[in-house]
Nucleic acid binder design. Structure first.
Lengths: 351, 351
DNA sequence: CTGTTAGCGCATTCAC
DNA sequence: GTGAATGCGCTAACAG
């Protein structure tokens, strides 16, 4: 893995970083004036400000925000927990969140739970130690202690990507079960009757589990007698696993006409496996995914999926959170809000 | 005249979060003892500790780390800047970094530059305000001020994903130009002579620019007279753009035999476009990518690429940074280190 | 527009 | 094993 290491001699250790006092002394003002000059919006004589900025420049001074936030009781942090940083859906949500925070002076503290509520609990605690001004979590499933920590944190809490039965406070999400059911009904409308579901073995990915539940519910509601569920591995689900799963599926239920995969990544893996085995898609078997990843629009054939507006989930959460923070600051009581984001079946070539 | 502020009794309804004083009072000890109990390794009577923990539990107390770090001068932050959170290569690096930090008590402060050195400069400054104990950046290109900020920060600086000519301090990376050249030589060895390069129009993505430079250098060195470069769009490069680019390539230089794409994502887009247009890959045209994304091993045909150990870059950076932090704490002078990570051409079906 | 005073909540340092 | 005094670097609140 590591090819070679090159070491160079060390240089002298530098002296302690300059503080605001150093800047104030050099500019011949008080620290308070420096503090004002460094924020925008404060009324400062232009000459004073230039003098201060010069001192800042000369000394290479950088404001210490941890000290500032101790005093102002505003850390400028917003915490967000997502299951995985390597999943482009959640990465999009993080981007949407980050974008809506840009300009507010709030910085995102990102953590990933690896689809584990235990790891989430630990992360919640370590995040709260940083005194974030709001916290965004993925999903509505938490450990009892995690839930308690969130509820007692005294900051806006937003659960995303789901519609929890008893939300902690705010929610930005959609029903994964309903979205999945909608996909089943779409396939049914296209004439497919023997529809299977491919997902993970565990319920660690609660959204995946909800999608499976939605599938089973819809299949039953449509009077399609048998539900066919193939389970494979633990999240994060990979393309490769999707390929293995579809092979197992066809082996187990050769009559199957369509397969819904828990995400586009596994759908793509399934699609490619079909191509390798010369099973025509959608003729021999139709394939649908979930999430509208870039790959499902780019593959050949392109993959039918459910578009879930990942970016918007993050973006709306960010805006909601800004409103909530501002409201609490102004002493207003902020009502709990649930924002239901849109989703839509996107028909493509694979079905 | 003296204004007297009367403090409300502790029994008052307090919406404010409990502090260590509250815990200490409740447990009948001093704050110092609480502080010790909350860290591991301190010598505390077991009975005292249990009493304190009970008080913590009862009050729902959570340590305030921003206050702690002001006093201890250790924030527990490590800053990392990556170009994009939506690129699985950089997400892998972030994961590697985060994993190597787990257990050290250090928390990752992630920022993404959107491939812009100007945005990077702003991020460097806002990160430094948080007084991270080390900072990891992607690449060796920075604005002059960004570079100066990094150099003067007084903390370990690690540049990754590249081998800068004059590094700021530590480096964990590889030569993108050489890796790209190696891919050219591999294709040459397979008999290809008319080799093209597909990349972005700008030099914003400096790693992409290096790969193009490496391509041109290798093509010249091998005596392949013409270099064929197709440029499209700005980073982040998408699959779709790869598809458009290959169409333009074939139109412009119909004789072309092989195309190297700046990343696997554009390579995949190119591959799919060829399939749509019934251009056999690799028969009509061979395609190679860069980065060994999951998709290049999963697609059909699978895509020849350069594997670059993204996770290891982050992981090694994390370990290096832990050594450096520990060294500086111990007063040792830490020599500048350059860790060159491996890369390898991974031959697959597309060439 | 600028300065003074008084903490923010914790950990360091030294006592005991 | 525990406590008291002190200050980290900054900003709120007020005075001028």
């Amino acid at each position: 893995m590591i090819l070679k290491k090159i070491k160079e001699p060390a240089i002298a250790i530098r002296s302690a970083a300059p503080t605001m006092i150093d800047v104030a002394t050099r500019a011949g003002v008080s620290t308070m004036t420096v503090s004002r000059a460094l924020r925008d919006g404060a009324s400062i004589a232009e000459a004073t400000r230039t003098r201060i900025m010069k001192a800042v420049e000369d000394l290479g001074y950088v404001l210490d925000q941890s000290a500032g936030s101790l005093s102002s009781k505003r850390t400028g942090f917003v915490a967000a927990l997502i299951p995985s940083i390597n999943n482009s859906n959640f990465a999009d949500t993080a981007r949407g969140l980050s974008d809506s925070l840009a300009g507010s002076g709030l910085q995102l503290l990102l953590g990933y739970t690896d689809y584990s509520v235990e790891k989430e609990e630990r992360l919640i605690e370590s995040m709260l130690r940083r005194r974030p001004e709001a916290i965004v979590v993925t999903g509505g499933s938490h450990t009892p202690r995690g839930r308690k920590l969130l509820a007692q944190a005294g900051i806006p809490v937003i659960e995303t990507w789901d519609l929890p039965k008893s939300p902690i406070r705010h929610v930005v999400g959609f029903s994964n079960a309903e979205a999945s059911a909608k996909l089943v009904r779409y396939l049914h409308g296209k004439g497919y009757r023997k529809i299977a579901f491919i997902g993970g073995t565990t319920n660690r990915d609660t959204r995946g589990a909800d999608r499976r539940a939605g599938y089973e519910h819809a299949v039953a509601a449509l009077g399609l007698k048998d539900s066919r569920v193939i389970s494979f591995g633990t999240p994060p689900i990979s393309m490769k696993q999707g390929g293995e799963a579809i092979a197992r599926l066809i082996e187990q239920w050769p009559e199957v006409e369509a397969a819904i995969c828990v995400s586009d990544l596994s759908a793509f893996g399934a699609l490619v496996e079909c191509q390798r085995r010369k099973w025509a898609v959608p003729k021999r078997i139709a394939i649908a995914g979930f999430g509208d990843f870039e790959i499902s629009s780019c593959s050949y054939p392109s993959i039918t999926t459910v578009g879930v507006h990942c970016y918007d989930i993050g973006n709306s959460a960010g805006e909601l959170l800004l409103r909530a923070i501002e409201g609490e600051r102004a002493g207003r009581s902020v009502p709990a809000e649930t924002i239901i984001t849109e989703y839509a079946v996107i028909p493509r070539e694979s079905t």
